[in-house]
Design a binder for these strands. Structure first.
Length: 935
RNA sequence: GGGUGCUUAGCUCAGCGGUAGAGCACCGCCCUUACAAGGCGAUGGUCGUAGGUUCGAUCCCUACAGCACCCACCA
């Protein structure tokens, strides 16, 4: 093995071999265990969130694979309608074109081309992470198989009366020219104004003052509303008002939606551009007046002078005109929630358009789709981890709206609906099917609906569409390879656990439950592990506009300062932001980002994966775990160097030394805990457990303890120690493999032959079970004793400034028979590791030299002063220790002196307290005796 | 307005009813042949505040404060 750990070399070597070996595909035996990859955008690149999430999935898959389960990690990519279409549109824009300059077919063809060119970027990046995913079954949400699933679901839901088309007020993104769902709209608080405007009655005898944040919408007003019980204005209800600027007559109506306390108590009603007003309009039978075109300019329903103006321009004009007419009563600053499109940042305009919806709210829709999805979680059939996310899920479904599934885009699954010349709708998997199911004979030619489906519609089918549904037989990809076969593959439904972010519980998780329940009768997964959101070291959300994103590949490979600055600032358009980001990067990463390797990155993710909902990614922490990898590497080097040239005890030989029995006992405990942490998804505790075992037990103590054994005269002990060194290493490599696959594989390949192991790869080894290892509690006590003696001596050496290389004498006093036996047993180890001469016992009553002391139980461990030690300093040291122990004893006495404690606390707690006070007492008297001896 | 979290060492976080822990940072001594990406040792916390339950509270309950996030139609 190389002298130091070089992640780059190791990583480049293994992935291709693993993938080619077929070990990432289902083994075909054992209990099925499936994980669905949340399909990333096909044109996307790997970000920290992906890397974190995928590390979690990979740990689970590798673990279960080693446990002998029939594992499938189903991977694939999502066509990501809007995002992908926008990328290609931007390319066109750079050439001064829009998609409308191309035909629809040509545009879509161009998007496919782009997908072919860049679609494998993210999957190749995933490979760098080492994911044990089954690439032979990779799917794309727009491939033929998945598209046929989409068509079938649409048609079946339509025929079941669960999908309908209607002219409804929807969230319209005027920049993208499409409807978007409620979920794709963010409400952003902005500084605006509240304007008060006077409307006169038609006879000019009276007037009302309405308050609005959007004065331009008054062009579409159809009424003014007051609260039915508002006595101030009761006399106005039913009167007609003259709408300023438009000169239309509109009624004053009473509706209890109005809040009497807010504004003036009058609300203008614009049903075509406000969701509340729409509802009020319906209640009062008022026809909405749409005043905007689809790109949010004033249309022909408004007075001539405003037509063609953008809505924000129109606002200015309206205000100016009102001012002129003396109708603008008041203007005051006002904070308001503005609906903004997630995709384009454009302000959403509620717009009346024809759209397709999935019915989730009528009795029929609730019974067929919504309720089963709620029941799946309420009944515990699906469990969230952490558990409280089920509240989020449940509450959303309880207040759900119908799902608007049509999008006015070109890239996506075209809606399988056709219209005849009379406007009748025909739905079917294709035109012929639509005709065949026609309720009325079509009039003239059929033309297909122009719209495509919401991207999440196809994602909702992912749990079963990827397994081959609805085809009866094998499904092939475009290269003719079989990627799924529903009859055989439905064993992977339900999948075991879905690992995903809370931000798509509504978008994706809930909708998968709805669709999967409806079409397969099964839940899509048994558990949903909601992973934390990765933020930067300061807890800020990572975003390109803040320039604080980290590219997982930059952490793996490292990046120089200048390229990092360039990369982080290139998409920042505002110079001030750019400057700020550059400054921060130069400060945070003066030497760029060091290469930490995939394993260290993965270990970091594991170590950060507690149940907390955000994790702050600190590169310092990652560097620490790279050090851990290096430690493991060097420990392996030590073992190999010491094992290769000596006899290794045969398998089954009982361990010869206390140290071996102790490390095996600790290994057993560690494995038991690791098992538990896998069950509860506590990867942080799991990582910590293994970290501590490797570093603080195996390296710090066992490797050190093995040195005297390896170099000693006892050949049997040496051979046995060699075996144990190897066995523990090999076992711990197996336990670590799900977290750090590359380094463990690399080391394991060298270790395996020495143990006669014949598997081709570490992933094929069985998961190490605690139950297979024998515990020896007595050995633990022995080694703990030894560690106490050694720590005592080291403390003296350090605090008394005794040169580390200097061999010094060691005396032992008092103690009992057990201490004598142990001292004899560990004599060589003590001498070697503490750099002391062979320990000498001092008999009671014999004069002893002045010495510095440590106390282990009732035994005093003495380093004679003889010019080495400052008596004053030693007295101070002892005094301090005595003070500390007296404090502990006082605490114990306090408890035991409390009659209520003794009466009420469990017996073992009281006994433990008595034991403690006795132990402290023993130490205290030894220390006091020592202080006396120093005079 | 409804909901969900968080507040523990300088920083990032575990612990969650019975002796306050880790990583990183900091301090001292060491290039001791696995490892200076290292070794040995030391320092550092009245566990947000106030009550309550309990023999005992960082942990459970209540209130308060601060900080996040999600959902929602106040013009």
């Amino acid at each position: 093995m190389d002298k130091s750990f070089e992640p780059r070399q190791i990583e480049s070597k293994w992935y291709a071999r693993w993938e080619a070996s077929g070990d990432f595909q289902p083994s075909g035996h054992g209990e099925p265990y499936c994980i669905l990859l949340p399909p990333p955008n096909v044109t996307g690149t790997l970000h920290m969130g992906h890397a974190f999430q995928q590390t979690v999935m990979d740990m689970l898959i590798r673990y279960q694979r080693m446990r002998g389960l029939n594992t499938l990690w189903q991977v694939g990519t999502d066509h990501a309608g809007i995002a992908t279409q926008k990328i290609v549109e931007n390319q066109l824009a750079a050439a001064g074109q829009t998609r409308h300059d191309l035909s629809r077919e040509a545009f879509v063809e161009r998007v496919w081309q782009w997908k072919e060119e860049s679609g494998s970027t993210i999957t190749n990046q995933m490979r760098r992470l080492g994911v044990a995913a089954d690439w032979s079954r990779e799917r794309f949400t727009m491939d033929e198989g998945l598209s046929s699933a989409v068509r079938k679901v649409f048609v079946e839901w339509f025929r079941a009366g669960l999908i309908y088309r209607g002219n409804r007020l929807v969230n319209w993104d005027p920049a993208l020219g499409t409807a978007v769902s409620d979920l794709e709209v963010n409400n952003v608080e902005r500084d605006g104004h509240l304007w008060s405007i006077r409307y006169y009655t038609v006879d000019n005898s009276d007037s009302v003052v309405v308050a609005t944040t959007r004065p331009e919408t008054m062009l579409g007003d159809v009424a003014v509303a007051v609260h039915p019980e508002d006595e101030r204005y009761a006399h106005l209800v039913g009167k007609m008002l003259r709408l300023p600027l438009s000169n239309r007559e509109i009624p004053v109506i009473a509706d209890d939606y109005v809040d009497r306390e807010f504004g003036t108590g009058f609300v203008k009603i614009t049903p075509a551009h406000d969701f509340n007003d729409y509802a009020i309009g319906q209640r009062h039978n008022l026809a909405p007046i749409n005043i905007f075109t689809l790109d949010a300019k004033v249309n022909e329903n408004a007075p001539e002078q405003y037509r063609g103006l953008d809505r924000f321009e129109a606002r200015k004009r309206v205000l100016a005109d009102l001012e002129t007419e003396g109708l603008l009563v008041e203007t005051k600053p006002h904070k308001l929630q503005v609906p903004v499109s997630q995709r384009s940042d454009a302000v959403i305009e509620p717009m009346l358009t024809d759209q397709w919806f999935v019915d989730l709210t009528s009795d029929h829709g609730r019974k067929a789709i919504t309720e089963p999805a709620l029941d799946a979680v309420r009944s515990g059939e699906i469990k969230f981890v952490p558990e409280n996310w089920s509240t989020t899920y449940t509450q959303w479904l309880e207040n759900i709206q119908d799902w608007c599934i049509s999008r006015q885009l070109w890239w996506g699954h075209r809606i399988p609906a056709w219209y005849d010349e009379a406007g009748n709708i025909f739905v079917g998997e294709n035109e012929a099917d639509a005709r065949a199911h026609a309720a009325v004979p079509p009039v003239g030619a059929l033309r297909q609906d122009e719209d495509v489906l919401d991207t999440w519609f196809s994602s909702a089918l992912w749990p079963f569409s990827t397994l081959g549904w609805p085809a009866d037989g094998p499904v092939k990809n475009e290269r003719g390879e079989v990627v799924a076969d529903w009859q055989a593959d439905k064993i992977f439904l339900p999948s075991a656990v879905l690992v995903t972010g809370f931000d798509i519980i509504f978008f994706w998780v809930a909708r998968m439950v709805m669709a999967t329940k409806y079409f397969t009768g099964q839940v899509p997964f048994r558990e949903v592990y909601i992973n934390a959101i990765v933020r930067d070291a300061e807890g800020q959300k990572m975003s390109k506009s803040k320039g604080n994103t980290l590219d997982p590949l930059d952490l793996i490979d490292g990046i120089e300062l200048e390229p990092l600055v360039e990369k982080s600032t290139k998409s920042l358009l505002i110079p001030q932001v750019r400057e700020k980001v550059e400054k921060r990067i130069r400060k945070d990463y003066p030497a760029g980002i060091p290469a930490i390797g995939t394993d260290a990155l993965r270990f970091t993710f594991a170590a950060l994966a507690s149940y907390s909902r955000t994790i702050n990614f600190d590169i310092k922490r990652a560097e620490g775990y790279k050090a851990f990898c290096n430690k493991l590497w060097n420990a392996a080097r030590f073992v190999l160097m010491n094992v290769e040239n000596g006899a290794i005890a045969a398998a089954g030989t009982p361990p010869a030394t206390e140290a071996e029995r102790w490390i095996l006992t600790r290994l057993k405990q560690t494995l038991g805990d690791v098992e538990q942490h896998f069950l509860t998804y506590r990867f942080d505790l799991l990582a910590q457990e293994l970290y501590e075992f490797v570093w603080n037990e195996y390296c710090d103590w066992f490797l050190e303890l093995s040195k005297p054994a390896l170099n000693g005269d006892d050949a049997a002990a040496a051979a046995s120690t060699r075996r144990t060194l190897l066995v523990v290493l090999e076992t711990v490599l197996r336990a670590l493999h799900p977290i750090v696959p590359f380094i463990t594989e690399e080391i394991w390949q060298s270790v395996a032959p020495l143990l006669g192991l014949t598997e081709a790869a570490l992933l094929r080894r069985p998961w190490p079970k605690a139950g297979d290892i024998a515990a020896d509690e007595a050995a633990t006590a022995e080694v703990e004793w030894f560690k106490n003696v050694l720590s005592g001596i080291r403390r003296i050496r350090s605090e008394m400034n005794i040169a580390p290389g200097k061999t010094i004498p060691l005396l032992l006093a008092d103690g009992d028979a057990a201490d004598r036996a142990r001292a004899a047993k560990f004599a060589a180890q003590i001498a070697f590791l503490a750099r002391v001469d062979a320990p000498q016992w001092i008999d009671a009553g014999v004069d002893e030299p002045a010495a510095a002391a440590a106390v282990v139980g009732s035994m005093r461990v003495l380093i004679p002063l003889a010019g080495l030690i400052d008596v004053g300093a030693e007295k101070t040291r002892l005094g301090k220790e005595i003070g500390r122990i007296e404090g502990e004893i006082r605490k114990c006495e306090g408890k035991l002196g409390n009659a209520n404690f003794v009466a009420n606390a469990p017996a073992e707690v009281v006994a433990q307290e008595r034991q403690r006070i006795a132990d402290w007492g023993t130490q205290l008297s030894a220390l006091r005796e020592q202080l006396l001896k120093l005079g």
